[in-house]
Design a protein around this nucleic acid. Structure first.
Lengths: 214, 214
DNA sequence: CCTTCAGGTTAACGACCACTAACCCGGCTG
DNA sequence: CAGCCGGGTTAGTGGTCGTTAACCTGAAGG
């Protein structure tokens, strides 16, 4: 009620998308009514149709948008990373962590409501996702040349699951703060990737191969 | 009509629950109608109400059931594991992997539709989940005494995300078969846990900017 | 044989919900 | 100042869906 704040160029569309993402993440696409989305941004019900063709269109824009941003970010980091694949991998991980921690609702919706899209949009999202995965796979395989491509791909998927685990997290104080969490997730991801190569990997003693690098 | 197969004591209830789980996983709780669930088991629509009080009751039974089985399995493995916490951890991981690979739909529904439950059931499920997590946390901390409890808990959550990543997997042949997959997931989980201990409090110092910067 | 009863069936009802229709208003612009 | 128009509003509509009601049937069981 009190927040009539729109000082930033946060266009109405973006505001709606943000709230819709939050609500979709909380209660699922079908679980949220357009009236609720409207209420969340201070307008009510059908007013949304001045900005979107329908509820489906909101979901589509959310999913396509997030997929594009993820892929674009990934490509940027790969391009900036230069020669050292290890540094690129670090950058990819950090980028994904930022995303997972900052845009939690989007991440949730992202791998939850994909099937609610129209064929065309779904295909587009899947294609973007696939490209993002392949980006990672390439980098991972350069850092850890051992495993097969399908193993590397599975590992990348699994690490995504690991990094995206933040949404499912338990209640308040039982978990580290954001900075510590980011650092921890980074280490976990690196540890997982490190183990994909090794044989029946035994726990690497502290300071072991994981921390290698520089 | 054609499948009059009910040789096993697969009671109608169980059959319904299984199909409901699959459908809920595919299209979400709200996305599935009771008619579809009925059709999936050969009866139609309201016939389900001879077996369940309602759609919610099916979901509740699914979620409570899976949580109980997970916890029971975990406790069993801890009890059987004996002294060596490392062996127990291995057993916990393998058990969870079996679950993730065999009961994919249940896993999916499990961390997706929790909020659709009535208060009482939700509380029960959360309690079971929490106990399961704490089971892991204890074991992990015995294997890797370094990190704080909240770090260990976050790591356990993250590894759950990793192990539960199988549902989100891409299409057909691009991934390893079940045996290989189980082994790979096992290694990844171990690797992640191994890295949680990594630097006592500092980042792996791999020349990489771990801190979440801009 | 008549009854019971588990497990179905179809029809109908009521709630909800996405979307449309029709109207409204305040601020630019010519 | 006229008038367009972006962005709202409320009322209504058609469709879907969970649930209930009422009826049916075939297999025990006394």
């Amino acid at each position: 009620m009190s927040n009539a704040q729109a000082p930033a160029p946060t266009s109405r569309r973006e505001q709606i998308l943000k709230e819709a993402a939050r609500l979709f993440a909380e209660r699922g696409f079908h679980g949220v009514g357009v009236d609720e989305i409207g209420a969340a941004v201070g307008i009510s019900g059908p007013g949304l149709y001045r900005h979107f063709a329908g509820k489906d269109a909101m979901l589509a824009e959310l999913l396509v948008g997030i997929s594009e941003r993820l892929l674009a970010g990934g490509r940027m980091r790969v391009a900036e990373g230069g020669e050292d694949p290890r540094a690129v991998l670090h950058a990819l991980i950090d980028g994904h962590i930022d995303f997972a921690l900052d845009d939690r609702p989007l991440i949730t919706v992202h791998d939850r409501e994909l099937d609610r899209l129209r064929e065309a949009d779904r295909k587009r999202v899947r294609q973007l996702q696939r490209q993002y995965v392949e980006l990672w796979v390439e980098v991972v395989r350069r850092v850890h040349p051992g495993p097969s491509e399908s193993q590397a791909r599975a590992a990348v998927h699994a690490v995504f699951g690991l990094l995206n685990s933040t949404p499912h997290l338990g209640r308040p104080g039982s978990l580290p703060g954001r900075t510590e969490m980011a650092e921890l997730l980074h280490r976990l991801a690196l540890g997982a990737f490190g183990a994909v190569a090794g044989g029946p990997a035994e726990a690497p003693a502290a300071g072991g191969p994981v921390a290698a690098g520089a």
